[in-house]
Protein backbone atom coordinates (compact mmCIF):
# COMPACT_ATOMS: atom_id res chain seq x y z
CA UNK A 1 0.00 0.00 0.00
CA UNK A 2 1.82 3.19 -1.10
CA UNK A 3 -0.23 5.52 1.12
CA UNK A 4 -2.23 4.67 4.18
CA UNK A 5 -3.80 7.28 6.44
CA UNK A 6 -5.32 6.18 9.72
CA UNK A 7 -7.64 8.35 11.76
CA UNK A 8 -5.69 11.54 11.09
CA UNK A 9 -6.54 14.61 13.16
CA UNK A 10 -5.12 18.08 12.59
CA UNK A 11 -5.84 21.16 14.69
CA UNK A 12 -4.44 24.57 13.76
CA UNK A 13 -3.41 26.86 16.63
CA UNK A 14 -4.78 24.72 19.44
CA UNK A 15 -5.59 26.49 22.69
CA UNK A 16 -6.21 29.93 21.17
CA UNK A 17 -9.46 31.56 20.01
CA UNK A 18 -8.22 30.86 16.47
CA UNK A 19 -8.27 27.09 17.02
CA UNK A 20 -9.45 25.33 13.86
CA UNK A 21 -10.04 21.63 13.32
CA UNK A 22 -8.84 21.00 9.78
CA UNK A 23 -9.00 17.20 9.90
CA UNK A 24 -11.22 15.22 12.24
CA UNK A 25 -10.22 11.60 11.92
CA UNK A 26 -9.54 10.91 8.25
CA UNK A 27 -8.69 7.40 7.09
CA UNK A 28 -7.92 6.43 3.53
CA UNK A 29 -5.67 4.19 1.49
CA UNK A 30 -4.21 4.56 -1.98
CA UNK A 31 -3.27 1.44 -3.91
CA UNK A 32 -0.33 0.99 -6.26
CA UNK A 33 -0.83 2.53 -9.68
CA UNK A 34 -4.14 4.13 -8.82
CA UNK A 35 -5.38 7.55 -9.90
CA UNK A 36 -7.16 8.89 -6.83
CA UNK A 37 -9.11 12.11 -6.59
CA UNK A 38 -9.68 14.09 -3.41
CA UNK A 39 -12.54 16.54 -3.70
CA UNK A 40 -13.90 19.05 -1.27
CA UNK A 41 -15.04 22.59 -0.89
CA UNK A 42 -12.61 25.36 0.14
CA UNK A 43 -11.62 24.75 3.75
CA UNK A 44 -12.60 21.10 3.77
CA UNK A 45 -9.06 20.09 4.75
CA UNK A 46 -7.78 18.89 1.37
CA UNK A 47 -4.54 20.85 1.42
CA UNK A 48 -3.82 19.99 5.05
CA UNK A 49 -4.33 16.34 4.24
CA UNK A 50 -1.84 16.27 1.39
CA UNK A 51 0.78 18.13 3.45
CA UNK A 52 0.65 15.17 5.80
CA UNK A 53 1.33 12.76 2.97
CA UNK A 54 4.97 13.65 2.71
CA UNK A 55 5.70 14.59 6.27
CA UNK A 56 5.42 18.38 5.99
CA UNK A 57 2.87 18.38 8.78
CA UNK A 58 2.73 16.13 11.76
CA UNK A 59 0.10 15.74 14.37
CA UNK A 60 -1.35 13.48 16.95
CA UNK A 61 -3.44 11.41 17.00
CA UNK A 62 -3.46 9.48 13.76
CA UNK A 63 -0.83 7.92 11.56
CA UNK A 64 0.35 8.21 7.97
CA UNK A 65 2.23 5.40 6.27
CA UNK A 66 4.05 5.86 2.97
CA UNK A 67 5.40 2.65 1.45
CA UNK A 68 5.20 1.13 4.92
CA UNK A 69 7.19 3.93 6.62
CA UNK A 70 5.42 5.54 9.60
CA UNK A 71 5.82 9.30 9.07
CA UNK A 72 4.99 10.01 12.71
CA UNK A 73 8.06 8.05 13.74
CA UNK A 74 10.84 10.25 15.14
CA UNK A 75 13.48 8.51 13.07
CA UNK A 76 11.46 8.54 9.84
CA UNK A 77 13.72 9.16 6.85
CA UNK A 78 12.03 12.25 5.43
CA UNK A 79 14.41 12.44 2.49
CA UNK A 80 13.34 8.95 1.43
CA UNK A 81 9.70 9.92 1.89
CA UNK A 82 10.08 13.07 -0.20
CA UNK A 83 11.89 11.08 -2.85
CA UNK A 84 8.96 8.66 -3.00
CA UNK A 85 6.16 11.23 -2.81
CA UNK A 86 6.28 14.20 -5.16
CA UNK A 87 4.07 17.05 -4.02
CA UNK A 88 2.91 19.76 -6.42
CA UNK A 89 1.18 22.54 -4.49
CA UNK A 90 -1.52 24.84 -5.74
CA UNK A 91 -0.18 27.56 -8.04
CA UNK A 92 3.27 25.96 -8.07
CA UNK A 93 4.53 28.60 -10.50
CA UNK A 94 4.91 30.98 -7.55
CA UNK A 95 7.72 28.93 -6.08
CA UNK A 96 10.15 29.24 -9.00
CA UNK A 97 13.27 31.10 -7.97
CA UNK A 98 16.30 30.16 -10.07
CA UNK A 99 17.90 32.13 -12.90
CA UNK A 100 17.10 29.52 -15.51
CA UNK A 101 14.45 26.87 -16.00
CA UNK A 102 17.05 24.08 -16.02
CA UNK A 103 18.53 25.23 -12.69
CA UNK A 104 15.09 25.41 -11.12
CA UNK A 105 14.16 21.92 -12.26
CA UNK A 106 17.52 20.71 -10.94
CA UNK A 107 16.80 22.02 -7.42
CA UNK A 108 15.04 18.85 -6.28
CA UNK A 109 17.48 16.31 -7.72
CA UNK A 110 20.48 18.27 -6.40
CA UNK A 111 18.94 18.22 -2.92
CA UNK A 112 18.92 14.44 -3.30
CA UNK A 113 22.72 14.72 -3.78
CA UNK A 114 22.68 12.91 -7.11
CA UNK A 115 25.73 12.94 -9.43
CA UNK A 116 25.86 15.85 -11.90
CA UNK A 117 25.31 13.75 -15.05
CA UNK A 118 22.27 12.08 -13.48
CA UNK A 119 20.82 15.48 -12.55
CA UNK A 120 21.36 16.77 -16.07
CA UNK A 121 19.72 13.70 -17.57
CA UNK A 122 16.71 13.93 -15.26
CA UNK A 123 16.29 17.66 -15.91
CA UNK A 124 16.14 17.36 -19.68
CA UNK A 125 13.87 14.33 -19.38
CA UNK A 126 11.46 16.12 -17.02
CA UNK A 127 11.31 19.20 -19.24
CA UNK A 128 10.37 17.00 -22.21
CA UNK A 129 7.89 15.04 -20.13
CA UNK A 130 5.82 18.09 -19.22
CA UNK A 131 5.66 19.02 -22.90
CA UNK A 132 8.01 21.99 -22.88
CA UNK A 133 10.43 22.75 -25.67
CA UNK A 134 14.05 21.99 -24.64
CA UNK A 135 14.96 25.53 -25.75
CA UNK A 136 13.29 26.99 -22.63
CA UNK A 137 15.97 25.39 -20.43
CA UNK A 138 18.23 28.43 -20.55
CA UNK A 139 15.47 31.02 -20.22
CA UNK A 140 14.55 32.69 -16.96
CA UNK A 141 11.40 31.10 -15.55
CA UNK A 142 10.02 34.60 -15.03
CA UNK A 143 9.93 35.20 -18.79
CA UNK A 144 7.53 32.31 -19.42
CA UNK A 145 3.74 32.36 -19.61
CA UNK A 146 1.65 31.24 -16.65
CA UNK A 147 0.91 27.80 -18.09
CA UNK A 148 4.55 27.24 -19.00
CA UNK A 149 5.67 28.27 -15.51
CA UNK A 150 3.33 25.70 -14.02
CA UNK A 151 4.82 23.05 -16.27
CA UNK A 152 8.31 24.03 -15.14
CA UNK A 153 7.22 23.68 -11.52
CA UNK A 154 5.75 20.24 -12.20
CA UNK A 155 8.94 19.25 -14.04
CA UNK A 156 10.84 20.27 -10.89
CA UNK A 157 8.91 17.66 -8.94
CA UNK A 158 9.02 15.01 -11.67
CA UNK A 159 12.81 15.32 -11.82
CA UNK A 160 12.90 13.75 -8.37
CA UNK A 161 11.27 10.70 -10.00
CA UNK A 162 8.65 10.07 -7.33
CA UNK A 163 6.65 6.85 -7.44
CA UNK A 164 3.65 8.73 -6.07
CA UNK A 165 2.69 12.15 -7.41
CA UNK A 166 0.30 14.38 -5.48
CA UNK A 167 -1.13 17.46 -7.17
CA UNK A 168 -3.18 20.18 -5.49
CA UNK A 169 -5.58 21.79 -7.97
CA UNK A 170 -3.19 21.43 -10.90
CA UNK A 171 -5.67 22.99 -13.32
CA UNK A 172 -6.67 25.98 -11.16
CA UNK A 173 -6.65 29.27 -13.00
CA UNK A 174 -5.98 27.80 -16.44
CA UNK A 175 -8.16 28.47 -19.48
CA UNK A 176 -10.25 25.54 -20.81
CA UNK A 177 -7.60 24.53 -23.35
CA UNK A 178 -4.81 24.77 -20.75
CA UNK A 179 -6.97 22.76 -18.39
CA UNK A 180 -7.44 19.94 -20.88
CA UNK A 181 -3.72 19.87 -21.69
CA UNK A 182 -2.81 19.83 -18.02
CA UNK A 183 -5.17 16.91 -17.32
CA UNK A 184 -3.92 14.91 -20.27
CA UNK A 185 -0.36 15.58 -19.11
CA UNK A 186 -1.23 14.18 -15.68
CA UNK A 187 -2.95 11.19 -17.27
CA UNK A 188 0.22 10.52 -19.26
CA UNK A 189 2.29 10.63 -16.09
CA UNK A 190 -0.14 8.16 -14.50
CA UNK A 191 -0.05 5.88 -17.55
CA UNK A 192 3.73 5.67 -17.35
CA UNK A 193 3.39 3.95 -13.98
CA UNK A 194 3.15 6.69 -11.36
CA UNK A 195 0.50 6.53 -8.63
CA UNK A 196 -1.36 9.84 -8.77
CA UNK A 197 -3.41 11.66 -6.14
CA UNK A 198 -5.16 14.74 -7.48
CA UNK A 199 -6.91 17.30 -5.31
CA UNK A 200 -9.63 19.26 -7.03
CA UNK A 201 -13.00 20.84 -6.55
CA UNK A 202 -13.99 20.22 -10.16
CA UNK A 203 -16.12 17.11 -10.45
CA UNK A 204 -15.74 17.14 -14.22
CA UNK A 205 -11.95 16.92 -13.91
CA UNK A 206 -11.87 14.14 -11.34
CA UNK A 207 -14.72 12.29 -13.08
CA UNK A 208 -12.73 12.22 -16.27
CA UNK A 209 -9.44 11.05 -14.78
CA UNK A 210 -9.79 9.25 -11.47
CA UNK A 211 -10.32 5.59 -10.59
CA UNK A 212 -11.47 6.38 -7.10
CA UNK A 213 -12.67 9.48 -5.25
CA UNK A 214 -12.65 10.66 -1.67
CA UNK A 215 -15.02 13.49 -0.82
CA UNK A 216 -13.84 15.60 2.12
CA UNK A 217 -16.34 17.71 4.00
CA UNK A 218 -15.37 19.75 7.10
CA UNK A 219 -12.38 17.58 7.82
CA UNK A 220 -14.16 14.26 7.41
CA UNK A 221 -14.53 11.83 4.54
CA UNK A 222 -18.15 12.07 3.45
CA UNK A 223 -18.10 9.66 0.52
CA UNK A 224 -15.60 7.42 -1.20
CA UNK A 225 -15.74 5.09 -4.13
CA UNK A 226 -15.58 5.15 -7.91
CA UNK A 227 -16.76 8.36 -9.57
CA UNK A 228 -19.95 6.58 -10.63
CA UNK A 229 -20.71 5.62 -7.01
CA UNK A 230 -19.92 9.06 -5.64
CA UNK A 231 -21.97 10.92 -8.25
CA UNK A 232 -25.12 9.10 -7.14
CA UNK A 233 -25.18 11.37 -4.09
CA UNK A 234 -25.74 14.53 -6.07
CA UNK A 235 -28.05 16.15 -3.51
CA UNK A 236 -25.82 15.48 -0.51
CA UNK A 237 -22.82 16.74 -2.50
CA UNK A 238 -24.75 19.86 -3.39
CA UNK A 239 -25.22 20.49 0.34
CA UNK A 240 -21.42 20.42 0.73
CA UNK A 241 -21.00 23.10 -1.91
CA UNK A 242 -19.97 20.55 -4.54
CA UNK A 243 -21.57 19.74 -7.82
CA UNK A 244 -21.65 16.56 -9.87
CA UNK A 245 -21.01 16.68 -13.63
CA UNK A 246 -24.02 17.97 -15.59
CA UNK A 247 -24.59 14.61 -17.28
CA UNK A 248 -24.68 12.76 -13.95
CA UNK A 249 -27.19 15.30 -12.68
CA UNK A 250 -29.41 14.68 -15.71
CA UNK A 251 -29.16 10.89 -15.40
CA UNK A 252 -29.94 10.97 -11.66
CA UNK A 253 -32.91 13.28 -12.21
CA UNK A 254 -34.35 11.11 -14.97
CA UNK A 255 -33.97 7.99 -12.86
CA UNK A 256 -35.72 9.63 -9.91
CA UNK A 257 -38.57 10.62 -12.23
CA UNK A 258 -39.01 6.95 -13.06
CA UNK A 259 -37.12 6.59 -16.31
CA UNK A 260 -35.14 3.47 -16.99
CA UNK A 261 -31.60 4.88 -16.78
CA UNK A 262 -28.97 2.63 -15.16
CA UNK A 263 -27.13 3.91 -12.07
CA UNK A 264 -23.63 5.28 -12.19
CA UNK A 265 -23.47 7.04 -15.53
CA UNK A 266 -21.73 10.38 -15.72
CA UNK A 267 -19.97 10.57 -19.08
CA UNK A 268 -21.73 12.42 -21.86
CA UNK A 269 -21.56 9.46 -24.29
CA UNK A 270 -22.90 6.98 -21.74
CA UNK A 271 -25.82 9.13 -20.67
CA UNK A 272 -26.74 9.88 -24.29
CA UNK A 273 -26.66 6.20 -25.16
CA UNK A 274 -28.80 5.30 -22.14
CA UNK A 275 -31.45 7.87 -23.02
CA UNK A 276 -31.57 6.75 -26.66
CA UNK A 277 -31.72 3.15 -25.54
CA UNK A 278 -34.63 3.92 -23.24
CA UNK A 279 -36.53 5.77 -25.97
CA UNK A 280 -35.76 3.04 -28.52
CA UNK A 281 -37.22 0.35 -26.26
CA UNK A 282 -40.48 2.28 -26.22
CA UNK A 283 -40.24 2.83 -22.48
CA UNK A 284 -42.30 5.29 -20.48
CA UNK A 285 -42.68 8.46 -22.52
CA UNK A 286 -42.18 11.80 -20.88
CA UNK A 287 -45.45 13.71 -20.45
Amino acid sequence: MPIEVKNLVHVYMPGTPFEAHALKGVSLAVRDGEFVGIIGHTGSGKSTLISHLNGLEKSEPGAVFVNGMDLGDKGADLIAVRRAVGLVFQYPEYQLFEETVAKDVAFGPSNLKLPAEEIERRVSEAILRVGLDPSVSDKSPFELSGGQKRRVAIAGVLAMQPSILILDEPAAGLDPAGRREMLSLIRNIHDSGTTVVMVSHSMDDVGRCCDRLFVLNRGEIAFSGTPAEVFLHDEALHGMGLDVPECAKLANRLRREGFDIPEGLFREEEVCAAILNHLGKGGKQPC
Partner: peptide, 27 residues
Protein backbone atom coordinates in the same frame (compact mmCIF):
# COMPACT_ATOMS: atom_id res chain seq x y z
CA UNK B 1 3.47 27.65 1.50
CA UNK B 2 6.71 28.30 -0.37
CA UNK B 3 8.70 26.78 2.45
CA UNK B 4 6.57 23.65 2.31
CA UNK B 5 6.87 23.47 -1.45
CA UNK B 6 10.66 23.77 -1.35
CA UNK B 7 10.86 21.28 1.51
CA UNK B 8 8.83 18.88 -0.63
CA UNK B 9 11.63 19.27 -3.18
CA UNK B 10 14.14 18.29 -0.53
CA UNK B 11 15.21 21.77 0.62
CA UNK B 12 16.68 21.88 4.10
CA UNK B 13 16.08 25.04 6.14
CA UNK B 14 17.05 23.73 9.52
CA UNK B 15 20.53 22.30 9.49
CA UNK B 16 23.97 23.49 8.39
CA UNK B 17 26.17 26.40 9.43
CA UNK B 18 25.24 30.06 9.17
CA UNK B 19 26.37 30.41 5.55
CA UNK B 20 24.57 27.27 4.44
CA UNK B 21 21.41 28.39 6.15
CA UNK B 22 21.59 31.83 4.58
CA UNK B 23 21.99 30.19 1.19
CA UNK B 24 19.06 27.89 1.90
CA UNK B 25 16.87 30.97 2.31
CA UNK B 26 17.28 31.98 -1.35
CA UNK B 27 14.61 29.54 -2.65
Amino acid sequence: KIMKAQKARGADFETGNLLQRAKAMVP
